[in-house]
Design a protein around this nucleic acid. Sequence first.
DNA 1: ACGAGCGCCTGTCGGC
DNA 2: TGCCGACAGGCGCTCG
Length: 275
Amino acid sequence: MPELPEVEFFRHCLSQGRDNSPPILRENIREAELLWKGALAAPSPDEFLARVQGQTVERIGRRGKYLLIHLSEDTLVLHFRMSGEVVVEAQTEPVAKHCRLMLNFDDGIRLAFNNPRKFGRVWLVADPEALLAHLGPEPLSDAFTPERFYTTLQGCHRQMKYFLLDQKIIAGLGNIYVDEALYLSKIHPQTKSDTLSFEQAELLWKSIRQVLRDGIENQGTSFDWMYKGGNYQHFLKVYQRTGEPCAICGTPIKRITIAQRGTHYCPSCQTLSEK
DNA sequence: ACGAGCGCCTGTCGGC
DNA sequence: TGCCGACAGGCGCTCG
């Protein structure tokens, strides 16, 4: 499921190119094809198709789990939610089964937004800042400091799993990287945020940045058919390793449900002290 | 303020 | 072998 590292990899591919797929910078959009209308959050399909036509790709960005394709007039904002990827390919290629939107460029290539589960959404907006104003800080930016993080932790009395999944707190973390970061910092996922010491907060801050950087370095985490780009799944310590021995102490990894999500942790390394 | 529950989806997997 | 229900999960929403 595309979280920050996976989306960052998409950003890299679209702006730098990859293997047999060229970058799409300076490409001009001849026409767009909306294969599933539900993928479009705004504006209306008619307005979208008319407005996007003729615009040129100027820059590729990312904010949290959102991929930003800055065009000459507007910005195309993509969110994958549970599954999928963006692919640059020749217009002569067969259309992928789960393709929801295509941008056909002037020179024979296209950008395909493939999204098997139809949870992903696309926006075409003049002002992406306004659309994404609810997001918390970028975890890899200089603005995200241990001090600021600690202050935010102190301001809430929430289970750490909930806290870290909240995009208003930090932008870009999802289920995989939250479990991994909590494991690295030896914090139980049900620990209340305002009970952490500054030292624990600082260790968690480091761990969050560590797992995200490692994820990016490995081009993200591949999971079954949902996204098949990266290699980070080979380095996961707890996520989807229920019953396997903890790398540190050998205790079997436990799986519980928090926030309607599978949550994996080492019951020996990550203990719950106080509530 | 917090968190449970639900709906949106579809491929996969276990049970029969 | 094949059918079917359960499950997974990001996010916005309602509700207690």
